[in-house]
């Protein structure tokens, strides 16, 4: 249901709004013809892409294709785009769905690797900072994380590529993604720097969150109880303190991760990784509406699913939320 609303909204943004600001079917079609195109060619393409039809019909056709598929005339041949057919690219003459499926592992690789790194880094730095509040470690960690939060990925990404890949030659240059199934070592080598750069940004944020959360929970009565039981300080911090501080972080993590699965746009752009984010950017740059629609819907799907999982996990993590 939610996905339907999102799809309709996205469809509206890319198809309805241009109409409202005065674009004709021809001006829409102009984007998909060459620079030497005659008005006849433009008309032909507008007709072929269905731009003359009423908007509801265009949307209906698009939704129908998702469930039953659609056929596309390629001149010499006709291609059937089987369900779920999330549109057919005007420009690359490819069904969108297989491309999305093809791009997903890249984004998934990037997101999972970076998430592991940033959780490890963020949680440990944040916890140590909170426990040694005001110490040199705390202050330098928080300065570092402020820097990490404020420096955008296209800056850290470019600089780190320049330093680690092109000057020191330690890491892979941009655009060297290799699928895990082909070569796990090359896969990791190519993703190492993107992981680190993406993780840096997030770990900075998570360090701050963890620190704040830990400072709050470490002042709770149950921490005093844990100490009064004679628990080792490490157990007090981790099993009692961190465990409670983790809950809100889990929520944010779920949402961040879901958002990231829709495409780590900047990271993929800077490192030329062929993931969903890069796909979205390229689709928007080329005005390839079916691709834009497809990738938007996919991203929305991940965010919705991530929300759902977070809600479920919340009940697992916090017994007070459980029903009954």
């Amino acid at each position: 249901m939610l996905l339907f609303i999102i799809s309709a909204a996205t469809f509206g943004i890319f198809y309805l709004i241009p109409r409202l600001v005065g674009a004709t079917p021809e001006t829409l079609a102009t984007r998909y013809v060459g620079r030497a195109a005659t008005p006849e060619t433009v008309h032909l393409i507008a007709e072929k892409l269905g731009f003359y039809d009423p908007l509801w019909l265009q949307y209906g056709r698009w939704v129908k294709a998702i469930f039953v598929g659609a056929d596309y005339n390629l001149g010499a041949t006709v291609e059937h785009c089987p369900a779920p057919c999330f549109g057919y690219s005007f420009i690359t003459k490819q069904p969108v769905w297989p491309e999305l499926v093809d791009r997903l592992p890249v984004t998934l690789s990037l997101a999972i690797g970076a998430a592991i790194l940033w959780l490890l880094l963020g949680l440990s730095i944040g916890t140590l900072s909170a426990l040694r509040r005001g110490s040199f470690l705390d202050r330098s960690a928080m300065t570092f994380s402020l820097a990490g939060v404020s420096m955008p990925i296209f800056f850290t990404g470019m600089v780190s590529l320049l330093v680690f890949s092109y000057t020191l030659d330690w890491t892979a240059p941009g655009g060297s993604y290799t699928p895990f199934t082909e070569s796990p070592s090359e896969w990791a080598y190519a993703l190492l720097l993107p992981w680190l750069v993406l993780a840096l940004q997030f770990s900075a944020q998570y360090a701050r969150l963890t620190r704040a959360g830990m400072l709050e929970t470490m002042g709770e009565d149950y921490i005093r109880t844990a100490r009064a039981k004679g628990l080792r300080e490490r157990d007090v911090n981790v099993k009692h303190g961190l465990r409670a501080a983790l809950t809100p972080i889990l929520t944010i993590f779920g949402l961040d991760f879901g958002l990231l699965l829709g495409g780590a746009v900047l990271t993929e752009q800077v490192f030329s990784l062929p993931g969903l984010g890069k796909y979205a950017v390229d689709a928007i740059t080329n005005n390839d509406l079916p691709k834009v629609l497809g990738v938007t819907l996919m991203a929305a799907f991940f965010v919705v699913v991530a929300n759902l999982i977070v809600d479920l996990l919340y009940a697992v993590v916090d017994p007070r939320v459980r029903l009954g």
Binding site: D221, Y222, T225, A228, G230, R243, A244, T247, D318, P319
Partner: peptide, 19 residues
């Protein structure tokens, strides 16, 4: 602590770990 000497706290709701 907890062994030779132990303590009972004021508000058992906040003094016990909710998770």
């Amino acid at each position: 602590r907890g062994n030779q000497m132990a303590m009972i706290f004021q508000d058992p709701l906040s003094a016990m770990h909710p998770y």
